[in-house]
Design a protein around this nucleic acid. Structure first.
Lengths: 222, 222
DNA sequence: TAAAATATTTAGGTAAGCCTAATTTTCGTT
DNA sequence: AACGAAAATTAGGCTTACCTAAATATTTTA
């Protein structure tokens, strides 16, 4: 029951979680692309995970996969590790938010539960990582995300940035320069209906942001 | 040339380093015992390391192994990771010195050079880990250890504890209780020639220590 | 110095996790 | 509804890093 999952399996589960968060099943091809592994290899591993005891995924030939309760728990454990690590690397070692991902990607598989507890406690049990991604709770539930995309706001609305759903380093550095990071308050000044550009104020700076950006920034109105 | 060594290989090199520090060669059996791997497996891996390019070990059938310059560098890198991690886990996460080993054992193989540099800098480039073991320098040289075993001291000599060469958790906790940890000043009061017991003062406590302990504590006279 | 004990190596196998090439299934069109 | 494209699977192989059993080399000891 309390088998230790290989790093490889942990990675599969994490990526399946991400592909199925919306309720859909994860296709072999999508998984293969995300894991950077050939589709036949993915088929093989998925079959193995489905016939494991306890089964970690639900799988029917040609129908894609979803996580079982067990698989989901394991996935959330890895994601919790990853996000706590990102937060911690930023807070205690001065990593910037565009640098942490790779490091956390390797560490997430090898830290102990003790280590997990210690860094969580040291940071005061944070609920979001540096990108604003929600951190699964200690009992492995994913909190609900009550944010809306910035793109949905209109002039005169004010909000606090909660999450920035980007992984590209260049984009992250650009957004940081603009001050568009979690925790920051913004105000929408103008909306341009044709291209959906938003003009927003951050501190004393004003910027025009296109949809490709405003769709990736999630806020809480206030 | 700059191949990444597998975790398994890193472990072999680290253990070979430790077995050959005294200048001897490491026997297959000794290595097998230390790595908790069967002797035939060790023979196989050692042959592989010897014919790698560049060779990581020097090996002649039935003659044991030693590290090549390349192998030694790789070993010192792993050891540097391990010891920096131990220091850092103790300093920033409140691990005690008997708990850190296992965690560092897993992390040492996956941290980046960037991570290594950051924790070294954050701690002010320490030269010893929490046990007092010397940390290989950034350019991968092992500093000379200019300490002597406590067992060599005689009454009226005073010294500072520099290193405690023990890995058993129970012993470490016991020594910590007695205050016998690196950095502490001690004074030798009595020497008992038959059993080699030493009576020493630590702070305002006095203890009688047997040879099995005084041989594991290394000090600098002063 | 020869036999016994010990250490080491060789031989042959296994499991995990990946790959490419070939085949089959499903999907999107017309 | 059938055909071509796309997706997925099966078949067959490879590498890494282990294992046990058997064979051989070395060392110890009588």
């Amino acid at each position: 029951m309390e088998q230790t999952l290989t790093i490889s399996i942990q990675d599969y589960l994490k990526h399946i979680y991400e592909l199925t968060e919306n309720g859909e099943t994860a296709s072999t091809n999508a998984l293969a692309k995300k894991l950077n592994i050939s589709p036949p290899s993915v088929t093989g591993m998925v079959q193995k995970l489905a016939s494991a005891n306890p089964a970690l995924v639900e799988y029917q030939k040609h129908q894609g996969v979803t996580l079982t309760r067990e698989g989901k728990k394991a996935a959330l454990e890895v994601i919790r590790h990853h996000r706590l690590l990102e937060a911690w690397l930023v807070q205690t070692l001065g990593y910037s938010w565009d640098e942490v991902h790779e490091e956390a990607e390797r560490l997430e598989h090898v830290i102990s539960e003790d280590f997990e507890r210690r860094i969580a406690a040291a940071m005061g049990h944070p609920t979001r990582d540096p990108h604003g991604e929600l951190i699964p709770t200690e009992d492995l539930k994913m909190p609900l995300d009550d944010t809306t995309p910035l793109s949905a706001l209109r002039p005169n609305q004010t909000a606090t940035i909660k999450r920035v759903a980007a992984s590209d380093s260049k984009l992250l550095r650009y957004l940081e320069e603009l001050g568009l990071v979690p925790g920051v308050r913004i105000e929408v000044n103008e909306y341009s209906p044709f291209d959906h550009n938003l003009t927003i104020t951050v501190g004393r700076k004003t910027n025009v942001l296109g949809l490709s950006i405003t769709n990736k920034i999630f806020v809480q109105e206030s």
